[in-house]
């Protein structure tokens, strides 16, 4: 396996696709850092990691494209055959490819997260170190999970273009499902209640009124269970938990909904790493299992 890994790393580090992915990821990281800095003005009491997930996701897309195109080339050029003919086992070939792409994904992640963290430095200094480390770990593992899923998809599909399209489609489906359900999942507000609204009269008088509101994201019963199950089963959920992570340094005066939200966020962050690891193990097992039985041309 070491021999294949070495050859794959040489190939990756000479590939223009890898460097293009690095540049895209770095640009996304800078934009992420910049917009996080912008949000600083409003983030005085409630501190969370207010990334717009599109920038981090774009870096993830870049990693997926890099892995799918570089690994897909092994199939399109037929060079994967050479490794098997050379006597390497299929498990070793898979493991080497997964390890090599994991390393390149790490590089892509680093150039993305570094400017992001610099841009978020005002947040980083106010949250506990353990939370910061956990946050970065969950982000990294999520990148690696999506990369591993791409590797498995490529090994299962065995075609450069179809592998790329399928990996993209999978990521898109997971993200779309997440977008439809996240409003319900992250909502901690009650079903209905009263909001204090400040009203300014025509004569200039200002007074406050209690107004009834209905929470359209409130779910309970079976719907709630399904939303929770989807969250546990969606491989992107750990990534989104990190993106939406919350921390309140001073809890005095916080309403119940906000406190609940932070509590849920902490619980999600705690379960995120095991969830990603289980997903990774499942993706690898599926990839190896299918590849071991696959007839190569």
């Amino acid at each position: 396996m070491r021999d294949i890994l070495r050859s794959r790393l040489v190939k990756y580090f000479r590939s223009p696709i890898f460097y293009a992915a690095l540049i895209v990821s770095a640009v996304c990281g800078v934009l992420n850092g910049y917009y996080c800095g912008y949000f600083k003005i409003d983030m005085t009491d409630l501190i969370y990691c207010p990334m717009d997930d599109i920038w981090a996701l774009s870096a993830m897309w870049a990693a997926v494209v890099c892995t799918a195109l570089c690994l897909g080339r092994e199939f399109s050029d037929g060079t994967l055959r050479g490794k098997l003919i050379a006597g390497h086992s299929r498990t070793a070939v898979y493991a080497a490819e997964a390890a090599a792409s994991a390393l390149t994904t790490l590089c892509i992640f680093i150039v993305n997260i570094t400017p992001t963290v610099i841009g978020m430095s005002y947040i980083v200094v106010r949250i506990p170190l353990s939370l910061a480390v956990k946050w970065v770990t969950v982000m990294l593992l999520s990148f690696e999970l999506i990369n591993l899923m791409t590797v498995s998809v490529c090994f299962i599909i065995g075609s450069r273009s179809f592998g790329l399209v399928t990996a993209f489609a999978l990521l898109f489906v997971f993200y779309t499902i997440f977008c439809f359900t996240n409003g319900y999942y992250y909502n901690t507000a009650p079903k209905e209640g009263y909001d204090t609204v400040t009203i300014e009269e025509d004569n200039g008088e200002v007074h406050e009124e209690q107004m009834l509101f209905y929470n359209r994201y409130y779910v309970d019963g079976l719907a709630k269970k399904l939303i929770n199950a989807e969250h546990m089963l969606n491989p992107l959920s750990a990534f989104e938990d990190a993106v939406c992570a919350e921390y309140i340094p001073d809890k005095t005066g916080m309403d119940e909904s906000t406190l609940l939200s932070e509590k849920r966020s902490a619980a999600d962050m705690n379960s995120a790493i095991p969830r990603v690891l289980i997903w990774s193990a499942a993706a690898a097992a599926l990839g190896i299992g299918v590849f071991k039985r696959k007839d190569l041309k």
Binding site: R6, S7, D77, G78, T79, R81, G82, I85, A86
Partner: peptide, 27 residues
């Protein structure tokens, strides 16, 4: 050693680099 249907070579590499890759794969 085998050539099955089409040659297993990296099309984006030179002949020399292709052989070096194979040397690495074989350890």
């Amino acid at each position: 050693g085998a050539v099955v249907e089409t040659p297993s070579v990296y099309l984006d590499m030179t002949a020399e680099d292709n052989l070096k890759q194979q040397c690495m794969i074989l350890g």
